[in-house]
Write a protein that binds this DNA or RNA. Structure first.
Lengths: 226, 226
DNA sequence: TGAATGCTTCGGCTAGCATCGAAGTATGAA
DNA sequence: TTCATACTTCGATGCTAGCCGAAGCATTCA
């Protein structure tokens, strides 16, 4: 009768709380073991195993065996994009997982979104780059200006290496906590990596939180003023 | 424990086949009655009513009463975007609703995607506009060039009216049937409207199919050559 | 070789939910 | 008023899927 991809099959995979928790945990970008994911989802190992098998069969995650561990990761940025989109819809409808209290303000301040910076810091970053005319904004589309290209290179990023990939260089991504755009794409990922290499920030292990050191935050605000 | 929007709640709404069919039908952009949606989903009126109440409570659709009819529509472009994203994931994983046979080639040729043109014609449209340098492509971001602005105005579109809206003018949207980008955003919507006003194409009632008349297709290819 | 760890498979239980028949409400037409 | 249409609510049913205990592989370490 109908043709086209079967949405319901995929959406049903995302529709179970345990699986949604696992996928959300994987949104942090790094691969996690089956045991870690079971803990994140709050279920036993057996249950988690069943869920992970379904997610893999559904093509949403990939498996890499390493010794007696099994590491799982999202199968691509498109999966993360759909997850973020769903967060936006859920937020708009007012579905919070817990009372909206400031339970985890650190997450709202700065977090990793698959592989780039999100939260207050992520929005500030994009705002500052637009303010310094390093990035030009046309509606929702973003473009690295010539002076932006100079800046990125001076900042220690090998622009040629990340630009020739198939991935778009600049992409705007709606931030569900701030409800404004932050910088995604290859450049967004490269910048976050660079921040970590410079010692400005590090990911709090086991969470999506990006913690800026006081000195690092000072440098960040110097380079990317509000 | 966890914070953030509750993905699972929303995803579960999309995870039921009947509801997914309804939402897919609404992706055509126009509001449909409860009865029409029940037929689309292949369930009885009672069942459909229950589903529609859940979708409305979940904030995915909106209701407008008109006489003894109840018209439902997607609550926004963001819902359509998530649906298209899910189609991409489903397609990548190889989940087809039916055997991938050429059951509905018309849908692959040209269909409406919320409010803009998708399918073969949609991809050709964007390719031609890039080829004629009416639109500049920077990675995944799109920009209307100065000559593109002239063209659009000459084509009979009030650019000022659609550009000052909050909606991005040009946006690329991954086409699930062709696996290439087509033109979305305010301009994409305006172009499709114009095609219909010119009599080049019309939407087959009750479907997402956009049917081009022979003469209309000829004009289309003249203005937007491959 | 034996023990411990990490994960999967199997079986049975249970809860939730989609589904439909039947009855009820609201709007419009005769 | 009466009938028809469009839709909702109620109640009952049946199926699916998540869940965990127990047991079974596989890998690593002693």
């Amino acid at each position: 009768m109908k043709t086209g991809p079967d949405i319901a099959l995929v959406a049903a995979l995302l529709g179970d709380p345990a699986r949604a928790n696992m996928l959300t945990a994987l949104t942090a970008g790094q691969a996690l073991t089956a045991g870690e994911l079971a803990a994140q989802a709050g279920v036993t190992a057996q249950t988690a195993s069943s869920h992970l098998a379904k997610l893999e069969a559904g093509g949403l995650i990939t498996l890499r065996r390493q010794g007696r561990h099994r590491y799982f990761a999202l199968s691509g940025p498109d999966v993360a994009a759909v997850l973020e989109g769903l967060m936006g819809l859920a937020l708009r409808a007012g579905h919070q997982r817990t009372r909206t209290g400031p339970k985890e303000p650190a997450l709202r301040e700065a977090r990793i979104c698959y592989d780039h910076l999100a939260g207050d810091r992520g929005v500030e970053l994009l705002d500052a780059m637009i303010g310094r005319k390093l990035i030009a904004e046309h509606g929702e589309t973003l473009e690295l200006t010539p002076s932006g290209q100079h800046f990125v290179r001076d900042f220690g990023i090998d622009l040629a290496r990340i630009d020739n990939s198939r991935r778009p260089l600049c992409k705007s991504c709606l931030d569900w906590s701030v409800r404004r755009s932050h910088l995604a794409g290859a450049l967004g990922a490269a910048l976050l990596t660079r921040f970590q290499a410079l010692g400005w920030a590090r990911q709090v292990t086991g969470t999506r939180i990006i913690h800026f050191t006081p000195a690092g935050l000072k440098d960040f605000r110097r380079v990317f003023p509000a």
